Computed example of a mutant assay.
Amino acid sequence: MKYYYNDENIKLIYGDTTKILKKLQEKSVDMIFSDPPYFLSNDGITCSNGKMVSVNKGEWDKSKGFKNDVHFHKKWIKACDRVLKEDGSIWISGTYHCIHQIAYILLSMGYYIINEVTWYKTNAAPNLGCRCLTASHETLIWAKKSKKEKHTFNYEIAKQLNAGKQMRSVWEISTTPKSEKMFGKHPTQKPLKLLERIIKISTNEEDVILDPFCGSSSTGVGAVSNNRKYIGIDISEEYLELSKKRLIYIAKEKNNGTN
């Protein structure tokens, strides 16, 4: 494996995620957060900072047709299944373009869906075509290997994060702020508030968290900030460099006691 960065608590690995996952130790990961390609790069347009821009994000986000897209999702999910502990859990984000395919694959593998979470984006981009409803949410599936397995759920922490009340399955969280893009940006970067909530409620300190499509490693920043270990995999050295900068910075901030 080609480690882009490697220390006791942080491992960034360059390469194709399905191939890399075959080399990791079996049943060694406590939680997986996956933000896979949604295959949205279809030459359309969207709005960013008040400007009309292309939706294209890169070749990795272009659909290769329904059957090929489903096959892609099956491959990486099965590879993740091998490294996930029996009592571990997996979170997968998506939109209607892919999330229903993913849910079907998980269920066909015998997985049990713990929750489906709706991430409502309070500041989502407007719809420029004006021919359908404005897309303002993403779906997060939280699942485990089987219903009988006892997964980690920090119920009291979830209540604390929700003003002392039971946390519901609709989360109102703004899109990623500029302050989290100080070292650069990834086109599908998730807000730290979203990842920290997931990490705090579904893992414990010293747990190993894996992100198979890590991008700019918001998952890693949330993991390191909260005393978890992190493995991030990406096929782009550009984004691994961005991840490295963010993770080194947050680790220093944490060690200095300012985080």
Rank of each mutant, 00 (worst) to 15 (best):
M1S: 10
Y14R: 08
D16E: 07
T17F: 03
T18Y: 08
K22W: 01
K22T: 05
Q25T: 11
S28F: 05
S34A: 14
P36W: 07
Y38I: 00
L40I: 07
S41L: 06
N42E: 14
D43F: 06
G44L: 14
I45A: 13
G50S: 15
M52H: 12
M52Y: 15
S54R: 15
N56K: 09
N56P: 11
F66R: 14
K67A: 12
V70P: 07
H73M: 08
H73R: 14
W76D: 01
K78E: 09
C80G: 02
R82A: 06
V83K: 01
V83H: 12
E86A: 07
D87C: 07
G88N: 13
G88F: 12
I90L: 15
S93E: 04
H97Y: 07
H97E: 07
C98N: 14
I99K: 03
I99P: 04
I99V: 07
H100W: 10
H100T: 10
G110Y: 08
Y111W: 13
Y111Q: 13
N115L: 00
E116R: 15
Y120D: 08
K121T: 03
T122P: 13
L128T: 11
R131Y: 10
L133N: 15
A135F: 05
S136D: 12
S136M: 08
S136Y: 11
W142P: 00
W142G: 00
A143E: 11
A143P: 14
K144T: 14
K147A: 06
K148E: 03
E149I: 04
E156Y: 08
I157Y: 12
K159F: 04
Q160T: 02
N162F: 00
K165G: 09
K165E: 15
W171V: 02
S174Q: 10
T175E: 12
S179F: 01
K181D: 04
K181M: 08
F183W: 13
F183C: 11
G184N: 06
G184A: 11
K185H: 08
Q189G: 03
L192Y: 00
E196C: 05
R197E: 02
I199G: 10
V208K: 06
D211M: 06
S217C: 13
S217P: 06
T219D: 08
G220E: 12
V221R: 00
V221P: 00
G222N: 05
N226I: 07
K229V: 00
G232W: 04
I233G: 10
I233C: 06
L242D: 02
R246M: 05
I250E: 02
I250K: 01
K254N: 10
T258S: 13
